[in-house]
Amino acid sequence: MFEVLDYPFMQRALLAALLIGAAAPAVGIYLVQRRQALMGDGIGHVALTGVALGFLFNTSPVWMAVAVSAVGAVAMELLRSSGLARGDIALAMLFYGGMAGGVMIINLAPGGSTANLTSYLWGSVTTVSPADITAILWLSAFVLLISLGLRRQLFAVCQDEEFARVTGLPVRALNLLLAVTAAATVTVAMRVVGLLLVSALMVIPVVAAQQATRGFAMTLAAAIGFGVLVSLSGTVTSYYADVPPGATIVLIALSLFALASLLALPLARRRARRALPAQAPAPAPEPAARP
């Protein structure tokens, strides 16, 4: 039954899926909290330019993608916090620039063509090399260390930035750290689900988890559990059914989200009923004529 584990390439694939399934929602939860669910997509498009630069300079595409997408994520954060550009417009520019830059540069690379980008666009977890595994291991360890170790601080910054600044937290540094962490996550996940579907693994497990949870720590734990579940089961399914792993993982995640929302419906109704007496506004001090 575990013949899937007999092949070294599948051992690597499952290890990569496990690490990414845990790391992606751990960062994604902060982006969802700050209502920047699409930021992962923006970074993914920029990472494409990094991959192409890796081909052009004949260096590791993964580490080049880490560097370029970190620069892109920091630029996006600086634009957001300075208020120079609206968040969605900064994001749109990054989408177009990253995509066009990637296609242009890969065609400048000797012998390069857009075909080289395909495995990064759609992911190919079953072709992960031992060198890739080392990179994935380091990057996901960094991502989990930041997103779990600083969870109270990052929670405070994403929940209420002004309050966080007044508590004396280094808010700008934490925001930049979060941006770099998100960039690292995207480049880790691109080998598994592909750059175009990266954000799905950062967002869907979080949204599925919060259908049933009341608190942040609970949502974080459940999202990591869901992330690991969908990425492992998607990789195994893709092996047996001979279907693309990235798309399988995302479709399983979406099914999980649908199931969670369906199961949470009665729960939500019960909570709404219970909250109703508390929600009812107390009568405002109405003007009343004095006798």
């Binding site: 929670f155 929940q159 309050f163």
Partner: peptide
């Protein structure tokens, strides 16, 4: 100013 896209308990806030 204090809103988030993820649920949080009173104790967490």
């Amino acid at each position: 100013t204090a809103t988030g896209g993820v649920p949080a308990t009173l104790r967490e806030v």
